[in-house]
Simulated assay, not measured.
Amino acid sequence: MPGRRSAAPRARDAPSATLPARDRKSTTREPIIQEPEVFHASGAPGAAEPEATRREAGVTESSRANRGWWDRNADEYQVEHGTFLGDDRFVWGPEGLDEVEAELLGPPEDLGGKDVLEIGAGAAQCSRWLAAQGARPVALDLSHRQLQHALRIGGTFPLVQADAAALPFADASFDLACSAYGALPFVADPVLVLREVRRVLRPGGRLVFSVTHPIRWAFPDEPGPEGLSVSGSYFDRTPYVEQDESGRAVYVEHHRTLGDRVRDVVAAGFRLADLVEPEWPAWNSSEWGGWSPLRGALIPGTAIFVCERD
């Protein structure tokens, strides 16, 4: 989801291989919040600005870097994007496509009584909306600080700090799963996450997730005309990495082509039911990072995958 490389609402968490594994048979409905690790790179007073580069970054390095980044930057993120996201809206991406109109999880009137897992929940805006429809959401995020914002806003549903690649839930615990720009853009092995989601879904369950549209990786992150010319290869899967002076990654995003994303969904055992590419609406005048009405009217910015578990 848009994050540091393409700063926009709904960038969330990434799984961390450093988190201790929990008993997968747990079906707790109590909040679980761990104390975060302390990172100083690019977050301590006087720290040098990280170097942006393209290089390989594996599962452990990516997840460790992104957990630290979101713990350090959650406050700024919520200040910058909190108004756009609201406290209890379900927005799929920077275009502003709302689940009220999209109904990608199904008609709102059918959500009552459904167990729903939100992955990369941030301040849990989507879970709050789901709860208002009568669903039973669980909001999961890797970032301790993001979940503190969820507590600040409030809600009666559980908040779980956990690794999306090792979900602390029993098999077949949920009817639906959703992720609005959460986890998947930041992980080195998306199939691992998708398989975990499939495991905790009941037969007939649905997963809907949104990510930055892969075509955006071929264009510079500029909102004006300079952002409309291809500057790199769409087929270059080399991750975007920000690293400190010692070469330690402090932020990582991973690029997958559209075909890669489809193959990931299938490899995880899902059936792809729909692929939604929201158009930029006339009412949305927002501009941040590489997102703007100009670019949104010409090239897609978000890809939403609707996946079914048979």
Rank of each mutant, 00 (worst) to 15 (best):
A162S: 04
A132K: 14
P239K: 03
A8Y: 05
R295W: 10
T238V: 08
R128I: 06
A164K: 06
S229Y: 14
R237K: 12
G112Y: 12
L130H: 00
S16I: 05
A218P: 11
I215E: 04
V197D: 02
A150C: 05
S16F: 02
P281H: 03
R256H: 09
R263K: 11
S62Q: 03
A14H: 07
A48C: 05
T238L: 06
S143H: 00
F305S: 10
L105D: 05
A150V: 01
T238S: 13
R10W: 15
D171A: 13
D115R: 07
G224A: 12
I215N: 02
D264N: 03
A273E: 10
G112P: 11
T28I: 12
F39N: 14
R145C: 12
F305N: 08
G227D: 08
F90S: 02
P108G: 12
R195P: 11
E35N: 13
R12H: 15
F219L: 14
D260Q: 01
E35H: 11
L207R: 00
R72K: 13
R261P: 11
P203S: 04
L298M: 14
L111F: 01
V116I: 11
R55G: 09
T18K: 11
P20S: 02
P107C: 11
H213P: 02
V262N: 11
F157L: 08
C126V: 11
D171V: 00
G182P: 04
G122F: 01
P45C: 10
P15K: 02
L176T: 03
W288A: 14
D75H: 12
D13W: 11
D23Y: 03
H144V: 05
L192E: 10
